[in-house]
């Protein structure tokens, strides 16, 4: 089984100021100077509060079967629902990933919240973008590993999105090796540190990657859907 961990540099995850503004709901020309300055100041401080940890495992080839659910070594592993399952056709293995910005980042948000709610919002936004970016980098690594196994990758999916029940975080964390100890799963399925992402990517010789699209899913209040609308 492939087991890889990474400590991506903070710098490689830092988002553009324009991306932060869009994520916060502004279109770029409308941004006032005060906000831009605040974002720039905040970006200067990110490195002090961030300790990125990320990694993934790849389950053995042909250990996964998919029909209406995901079976691992012929036992039920995940029931992600029909939306995700429609994307996991022909999957024969899974990459399971985990990424976090570390607990200092949470403490930073908490601390700033008591002083300046706007800056806390900025930090929160930056954190969300950074941890997504860390998963982008993991996805690149996973796709390279898949390539040399002559396999292709699906999109990434996380419990709690696209109708996949968040309870299945427990099964997901069970798959992760003991040295992935930088994120703890609470009984409520909340991950600590908060700025963390877990999820899966399907692998297989005959997998077809469908471009990600919110039409897959009917969740009207999902953050991705809201973001896409704002970005238009």
């Amino acid at each position: 089984m492939i087991n890889k961990t990474f400590r991506f540099s903070t710098e490689s995850l830092l988002p553009d100021i324009s991306l932060i503004l869009i994520e916060m709901g502004y279109s770029i020309p409308l941004a006032d100077h005060y906000l831009s300055d605040l974002i720039n100041d905040t970006l200067q401080q990110v490195r002090k509060h961030t300790r990125v940890q990320a990694g993934f495992i790849m389950l053995p080839k042909d250990s996964i079967k998919t029909q209406s659910n995901i079976l691992f070594e012929n036992r039920l592993l995940f029931e992600p629902g029909s939306i995700i399952m429609s994307q996991l056709q022909n999957v024969t293995s899974l990459a399971v990933f985990l990424a976090t910005l570390g607990s200092d980042f949470d403490l930073w948000i908490k601390f700033v919240q008591q002083i300046d709610m706007l800056q806390a919002f900025v930090i929160d936004t930056i954190g969300s973008l950074m941890v997504e970016k860390a998963v982008d980098l993991l996805e690149e690594q996973i796709s390279m590993q898949a390539m040399i196994r002559a396999e292709k990758c699906t999109n990434r999916f996380s419990p709690g999105y696209c109708q996949w029940l968040v309870d299945e975080q427990h099964q997901l964390f069970h798959l992760l090796p003991a040295d992935f100890d930088w994120v703890k799963l609470q009984p409520s399925c909340l991950m600590t540190p908060l700025k963390s992402i877990s999820g899966i990517i399907g692998l297989g010789k005959n997998v077809i990657k469908i471009p990600y699209h919110c039409a897959f899913c009917d969740n009207k209040s999902c953050y991705r859907r809201l973001k896409n609308r704002k970005g238009q």
Partner: peptide, 11 residues
Amino acid sequence: HPEVVHAVTQH
């Protein structure tokens, strides 16, 4: 120190 190699390569 793989993280150092990644950081440099990324730049």
